[in-house]
Design a protein around this nucleic acid. Structure first.
Lengths: 201, 201
DNA sequence: TCTAAAATAGGAACACGTTCCAGTTCACCG
DNA sequence: CGGTGAACTGGAACGTGTTCCTATTTTAGA
């Protein structure tokens, strides 16, 4: 549980290895997108990625690690997209709401994928803490960037706390939507209300 | 999936059935308390509750239903306890913080149980929506009661939104603690910061 | 009290996540 | 080039959630 993880973090590896990793994550996303969490079966992922089951487990030590890593990759793309094409809005609250709505809309356009990734994220236990933490950082980074779009100097503790609260609400709202308890409209509403509560400029 | 659930909600049933249900939930809590989510194995629950496996599934259609129902029962007890012995505090924020801290402290005194119940709650899918919704209602009820301790006439939409936001943050913080990402102290801190953000009297 | 229906017991069987192993291929070093 | 260890393949095997089936017990109604 300490050595052996030559691939654990973002450890390079050969080009062939990077390619295998990519194929695995691609297969994961494809299966999740089609059938959600239950459809991401380790044997199916291995087959579709053209690797042996044991190899799949060498790259990702569990189904949850696999899905959270997929979520991380998707989130990184989202973050880059938001960076390339920043949201507009006159106040911090408006910008944050727009950023989250854009992201949420993207996820809601692929409900099965969102269900798979969200449930994996929520189900993760302590062994996935590192990956979970990465995703959390990305999320608060996206929120704080929307709060302060310009190349910004310093974030206060309160800024970070606010971003965390917004992130928490966003996750809970997403879980509510994924489990069919709240509609897409209600989800957006709930996020907007929360942002306006904590960001009263 | 539509009829057949004569026991789904809180449907009475005979005294023997109520007793079986209680034994099952007791066994669930005992096993969870001792070994967490993984220790709540359906065969073990059935054996400890002195019930056949098929009977267990007649009462609770899945492990997640079982654990969320256990969470619901625990939460109902918590809610009653809070009602019997209301928190004190001069402002709504103080009272809410005290109520949540008391509850959180209770859960943190049994980490394995909390891990089991929290993870089940977060992993639940659409088929558990009803039970999940109950728990959510209990949570916001606890928060709004702390906000307005007196027999209160009306809650505004904003009151409910505020309580929801607080509940969301509390759940996220709990997940963070359960997965070992945040310490107990940080968890309390995070909740307090959020409450003070949304409840500025 | 007798009988039909519902509930329960007991346990086999299946699905999928996970582990493990024997054999093969690949990458690098001398 | 040959050898050595790591990585990979293919697949068997195991554990636990879930389903299913038959025999037995309990319950409710006539």
């Amino acid at each position: 549980m300490s050595s052996a993880n030559s691939l654990a973090v973002d450890d390079l590896g050969s080009a062939a290895q990077r390619d295998r990793r990519k194929r695995i994550l691609d297969a994961t996303i494809a299966l999740a997108s089609q059938g959600g969490f239950d459809a991401v079966q380790m044997r199916a992922v291995a087959e579709q990625a053209d690797v042996a089951l044991g190899t799949l487990y060498r790259y990702f030590p569990s189904k949850i690690h696999l899905l959270v890593s997929a979520l991380q990759r998707e989130f990184e793309r989202t973050e880059v997209a938001l960076r390339d094409k920043p949201v507009d809005g006159d106040t911090a609250a408006d910008r944050v709401i727009n950023a989250l709505k854009r992201t949420t809309r993207g996820m809601q356009s692929d409900p099965q994928l969102t269900e798979a990734l969200t449930r994996a994220f929520m189900f993760a236990d302590a062994s996935v803490a590192a990956e979970i933490h990465q995703v959390g950082m990305l999320l608060t980074a996206m929120v704080t960037r929307a709060m302060y779009p310009e190349g910004h100097e310093e974030l206060t503790d309160e800024d970070v706390s606010i971003a965390q609260v917004i992130g928490d609400v966003w996750l809970s709202a997403l879980v509510g939507w994924v489990t069919g308890r709240t509609s897409a409209a209600e989800t957006g509403q709930r996020i907007e209300v929360a942002v306006r509560l904590v960001l009263r400029d």
